[in-house]
Amino acid sequence: MKPPQSCPQTGELINKLLAATDNEAISMQNDPHLTGCPHCRFVIDQLTADLEKWQQQGPGTIAIDPTARIKSASANSGKLQPILVKVAAIAAASVLTGLIVSHKLIPASGPTYRDIAADYTLELSTDDSFPIDYFNEE
């Protein structure tokens, strides 16, 4: 007799097996439904085999040598340090020179904000340029 192609309980049994510990998975083999349903028996047997295979699966023997990489990283950081110190010293010297030069070249007694503001203050009583008579004309 050809076994049935599907069973409504298969999904539930797959879920149960995926959640099961090793001992629970072993005891699941005696589930009363599995003894009477060839479809579920087939699926659960396949899944059990696939799960075991997956659990044992790995990338195999891998040859890595991170010690070589950390040594080369340390060596590189040793070489890099004097270069970084030089770059920092040059940058600091440039900034300092810039500050000194700007201090020397820009005159200290330039017009201030208050001076400029005073220039533009409108003094109606004393300002000759303002045509105040215009408003008084009849």
């Binding site: 599907s6 298969t10 999904g11 797959i14 479809h39 699926v43 396949q46 899944l47």
Partner: peptide, 12 residues
């Protein structure tokens, strides 16, 4: 379950 169920059904 959603992925494996059709796979095992098809395999059978």
């Amino acid at each position: 379950v959603k992925i494996l169920l059709p796979y095992y059904n098809n395999k059978k």
